[in-house]
Every structure is written in C-alpha cells, then in structure tokens.
Design a protein around this nucleic acid. Structure first.
Lengths: 250, 250
DNA sequence: GCAATTATCTGATCCATATCATGGACTGAA
DNA sequence: TTCAGTCCATGATATGGATCAGATAATTGC
C-alpha cells in the first residue's frame, strides 16, 4: 500500500497588502504584453497600478460585479469560476504570476461573468479599464500581444470544448494533469510536482466530473504507478502513459 | 400529427468565384473592426484582399494546413470543426457574412487547429497574416476592436464549457436553438426561422450529443408546440419555454 | 414517375458516471 | 494529546444518453 506523504506543495507566504515596489516592477517587466515597452513607459504604467493582497479562499471579485478593472497576478494562484444555478462550480482557468484576467469584457457586458478566487495567498495588481484602454491606444504593439494571448486562450477553450464533447472522464483528467504539469510543474523527488494546492473537488471542477469520480481515477493512476498523490497535491511520474490515456481513441 | 413542411430555409445562390467588387466593398465596410477606417483606407485594404468561391460541402481549409490567411465571409455560411481521433466532429462555430476566422493563430501554432467547411455556397475574402498584422500595426483602433471581438468569442466559449459541464442534453439543445435564432433568426410564417441548413447531425455536433438524441429532443419540442421543424430546418415558436428549459436548475 | 439515397424517428439495450452513503485518514486548533 | 472538521476512498444503486437496429418519410437523380 502506498503511504501518503506530507504535502510537498510549497504554501506561498505573502503578507496581504505587501507587494514591494521591486516585486511590482519585476512582475510588470515580466508581463508578455509589456515586453515591447521601454523601462520609462513601464514606470509610467506603474503609477496607474493599484495592488491588493488576498488570503486563501478570498474572492477578488464576483460574477455580476461591475467590470471596471483588469487584474495581473504578482504572486500566488487564482481560479476563475462560473457558477451554475444548481450550485455546481466550473473552473475555467487556474492563473499564475504574470497572467491577466478581469476587465477584457466588451462594452456589451459591463459586469464580470466569472468569479475570481484566491487559491493561495495572492498579491494582485489592478488597473482600470480606461487606463488599460489608453495604454492599448498609445502602444499598438501591446494591443497585438494582448490579442495573441487572448487568441491563445480561445484555442485552449476550444481544446476544452473538444475534450468535454468527446472524451471520457479518465481521458479528461489525464489531459488536465498534463496541462497543469506543463504550466506549474516543478521537478521534485516525488515526480513532476504540480506546484499548487489541488483538491479532488478542484480537479472535478476543471474536468466536468464529481469529486468521487476524480478520486477513483486518481487512485487508479496511483495504483498504476503513473502519479504520486496525497491530500491536495499531485505529482506526475509516468507522463507517457498519461499522454497515451489522454489521446486514446474512444 | 404535425405535417412536415417543405424546407423554408432559402438556399443561398452564389456562383463560385463571383463576388462583385461592390459586394466586397459592402462587406468590408460592414466588418466591425474596419468601422473606424476611412473609405480610402478600406479601398487600400481591398487591394490586398483575395476572394474565392466554394460549393456546399467544400472545405476552405483543413486542420493542420499552414495558417497563413485570415478569412472573412462575404456570403454564405461556414462551420468550424475539430475532429476527434475517433472520427466524431465537434462544431465550434457557425459563421455568417462579416465574420472573420482563420489566421489569428499565435506564432506558437503555425497551422490551423480547426477545419473550415462551407454549409452553403460561400464567397470568402482572404488576406495574408502579414497583411493583417500590418493593418493592426498601422491602425490601433482596428486592433482594439479585433481584441474585443476575440474576447467576446472567448466568453461565448466559456458559456459552452459551462453548458457542457453542468447541463443536460435537452438544456444544451434549447440553449443552442436560442443562440442560433439570435444570430440567424428571421421572422417567417412558420415562426422565427433559423436561416441556415441545419441537420440533426449538425445540431448534434454543436451540442455534444448524437443525432438520435438530437432527434428525440427536437421531436419532443415539436410535439410540445415549441418549434416547427422538418428536414434540415428549424423554426422557433415558443421562445419563452425554450429559455426556461435552458435555464432550468439541474 | 419511380427507384435509390438520405435524413429522421423510434425502440431496446448497455454503460459511463452521477448520486447517495459510509468509513477512514489527515490536519489544525484547543 | 485529543478532538472536531475536512478531505479522500470505496461501495451500491440510479440514470441520462450512447449504441445498435430497424422502419418510415422526404429528396434527388434517372
């Protein structure tokens, strides 16, 4: 019987409301769509940026709130959720430092459609929609890079629609683990560790399954030796087998 | 027993390769992201545009083809498909005149991820990716409008993910009929006619169901008096009941 | 006008996963 | 160290929809 290990996921320790100026500038420089800007431009942008800290479980905003700000994660992890009227949550994205979310809603939709919730301690930077629009007008190269990133998200959403339409729960879970490892994976003695807290509930939210189904599949993957896992953590060991499962013909 | 009617959907008669210059300029003026450009600019853009005609069933391009052009539909209807290895098609979008598709793939994906297929006779305009990028660089307002349109598509894709994750086949079909009526609906004596050829197979492709399930649900909606339907056509009669079905708690 | 083909409808059966329930293990606070 | 709360694992049962099959109706081509 495989003995469960202590949770190897590092809990990110950010004091709420403690984003240093150095961290902000470091993050802003690292944001892909500002990469084409000069240092002085980024410092100008920094003047328009607000910052806020959140504890795990805190909500950055709710669906239905006025969509007046764009957010960028400086530290921590955030999930974007849509709620059903039956109370079931669907996780649309798990975001990491440097990623933006929130105020891209078009003018025809003046409220947030998703809810943003902190998975860990989070420091988030925000800029008003007007401020962001001004940057887009003044710097076409920024607009093109944002367009490329949103187009890439649209392709990823189409991947998900494809999976949900034609794949089994096991295939979707295998594919999701591989996607998370590509995004958040860190080599660790237990395997390629997905470096974020990840409960069976959250995995179910991402794969259109229930916690019970996620638990059955994850347990089977562990018995097969493909992953190592415990409470709120998963590390991949046999990526090749997971890849074959994800791509298997139905 | 409800007697089936002759197909009220008008078959669009476009001679392949016969987009008049008038039609081209009319369409280019109507494209939302060119709305901010002056007439002389649009005529300049018209110089870079190629046109091509397609018969129903023809493929504009296949998944895996080099992604070198952006397309705009001048006339007709096009569907975007992703194929599974098991041969099941998933329809991601049904596009109408004025809508663009194709060459927004980011540089990390140099081939088309979807297949584009003509549902009717189609006249399509195309411009190279380089040409389109030049327009974006020269006209920031165009880039911002394209960004808004792609962001709106991302929201629609998230809607679909939400539906696929948490709704029944009947709810998804009701929601899809309403979406199609909002996009393509024309008042007709049979009801609000979805003005495109639409078989049970195609409806199944859009709703992650099978043609048999689509047929059962559509027959039930007709028996309930909510729609009128026949071979390859559907008209909505009781939109309120369909809306309630789509939003019903699971 | 008729035959062939295509599209739709309906029935029977099967299955993947949800639902409901229970027990065990781990974590954190007192 | 203990206990309450949370998370996970597993079993039994129910169900929505897929699969397979056959019949009927509409359309198209000769």
């Amino acid at each position: 019987m495989i003995k469960r290990r202590k949770n190897p996921v590092e809990m990110i320790h950010t004091e709420p409301n403690l984003c240093s100026t150095d961290l902000r500038l470091h993050i802003l420089h690292g944001v892909p769509f500002f990469a084409s800007l000069e240092h002085t431009k980024i410092e100008e942008i920094n003047q328009q940026i607000h910052e806020k800290g959140f504890k795990p479980g805190d909500y950055l905003y709710f669906a239905g709130d006025p969509a007046d700000s764009l957010f960028i994660i400086a530290e921590g992890r955030v999930k974007l959720l849509r709620h059903t009227t039956a109370g079931k949550d669907v996780m649309l994205d798990l975001l990491i430092p440097g990623e933006f979310f929130g105020g891209l809603s078009t003018s025809s939709s003046s409220t947030y459609l998703e809810t943003a919730q902190a998975l860990t301690s989070v420091c988030a930077l925000s800029i008003s929609r007007e401020g962001f629009r001004t940057i887009l007008n003044q710097h076409p190269a920024v607009g093109i890079q944002v367009l490329d990133l949103v187009a890439a998200r649209l392709e990823a959403a189409h991947d998900t629609i494809h999976q949900l339409s034609a794949q089994t729960a096991e295939q979707r879970i295998a594919a999701t683990l591989l996607m998370l490892a590509a995004k958040l994976g860190e080599p660790h003695e237990v395997g390629l560790l997905i470096q974020t807290p990840l409960s069976r509930d959250e995995l179910a939210e991402m794969t259109a399954t229930t916690p019970e189904t996620a638990s059955r599949v994850i347990s089977q993957f562990q018995r097969d030796g493909w992953i190592a896992t415990g409470r709120k953590w998963i590390a991949l060991i046999r990526l090749e087998e997971l890849l074959q499962t994800a791509e298997m013909k139905v």
